Amino acid sequence: MLANDLVLGWVSGRYEIGPRALGNRSILAAPFHDSIRERLNVIKQREQFRPIAPVCLNKDAARWFGCHQASPYMLYTYKSTTDALAAVTHVNGTARIQTVTPASNRNLYGLLTAFSARTGYGVLCNTSLNFSGKGFINNIGDLDAYAVQHGLDGFVVNGRAHLLKSSERYQAHLKVSAMPVPGARGASSA
């Protein structure tokens, strides 16, 4: 779903507290298109010049951002080494990355690994899942209201996906994922 440009809330594991999302209460999206950054800033109700931070597999941080050390708390900025990650690269070519290992966040690491297997990039957009000026969202009722009010395509809570049937992107994703694969068993050649 993320590889097909859906924007999802991500609630996994323990609560988070502090100034930024570190992968337990996040809004996640594919990092490839500037239109995703624009959409995330609309969702977050903030100015369009605001950058979106990438969360990255620690093993890929040097390749995509020239980062040769762990950066688990989004404290440092690095120069992006590719134009492919437009949604997480600021206008000055930098990104404030968070690196993830199995020890730092097992669930997010698994998601990034799966995304990398599908796209070739172990990187996602990561921004905080919170109402503007309030703390992180920590109950399902607030999460559901946030998804509807702010235009998320759905959310994942501890590995279980909840998707908005009204989301045009989700409906498009269903059509694409239902298409038969040419040459696969049972696929029609018509």
Results as ranks from 00 to 15, higher is better:
103 A>C: 11
65 F>V: 06
123 V>R: 03
75 L>D: 04
70 A>W: 04
92 N>F: 02
56 C>Q: 01
122 G>E: 05
61 A>E: 06
56 C>W: 00
60 D>W: 06
74 M>Q: 12
66 G>A: 03
89 T>E: 05
119 T>S: 05
57 L>W: 09
100 V>F: 06
127 T>P: 05
76 Y>M: 15
91 V>Y: 11
116 S>N: 15
65 F>G: 01
105 N>Y: 03
93 G>R: 07
66 G>P: 03
55 V>E: 00
84 A>C: 11
79 K>R: 13
64 W>Q: 00
61 A>R: 02
50 R>D: 00
97 I>T: 08
61 A>H: 04
108 L>N: 11
80 S>H: 04
78 Y>D: 08
118 R>K: 15
64 W>S: 03
77 T>C: 13
112 L>N: 04
69 Q>R: 13
69 Q>G: 01
129 L>V: 10
92 N>T: 10
72 P>W: 03
100 V>L: 12
80 S>F: 09
49 F>L: 13
84 A>P: 09
65 F>S: 05
97 I>C: 01
53 A>T: 00
64 W>N: 03
68 H>G: 12
105 N>A: 06
64 W>Y: 15
113 T>Q: 12
89 T>N: 09
52 I>M: 10
56 C>D: 00
129 L>F: 15
68 H>W: 08
110 G>V: 02
107 N>D: 15
116 S>C: 14
80 S>Q: 05
76 Y>C: 15
61 A>V: 04
72 P>L: 05
64 W>D: 00
126 N>Y: 09
121 Y>N: 00
81 T>W: 10
101 T>F: 03
89 T>W: 05
66 G>D: 07
69 Q>H: 13
108 L>D: 11
97 I>S: 02
88 V>Y: 02
125 C>M: 08
100 V>E: 08
90 H>D: 14
118 R>T: 15
86 A>F: 01
113 T>S: 15
125 C>E: 00
77 T>H: 12
117 A>L: 14
80 S>P: 06
84 A>K: 14
104 S>N: 06
74 M>H: 03
59 K>G: 10
111 L>K: 06
65 F>L: 09
83 D>S: 14
53 A>F: 00
128 S>V: 10
75 L>A: 12
49 F>P: 01
111 L>M: 14
59 K>P: 00
105 N>I: 07
50 R>S: 14
51 P>V: 02
67 C>L: 11
106 R>D: 09
109 Y>M: 08
78 Y>P: 00
109 Y>P: 00
54 P>L: 04
110 G>N: 10
86 A>Q: 14
123 V>D: 07
86 A>E: 12
76 Y>W: 14
115 F>H: 15
123 V>W: 03
57 L>R: 05
97 I>G: 04
84 A>G: 12
89 T>H: 04
107 N>R: 14
66 G>I: 06
50 R>I: 11
62 A>Y: 11
126 N>L: 10
96 R>E: 09
72 P>C: 05
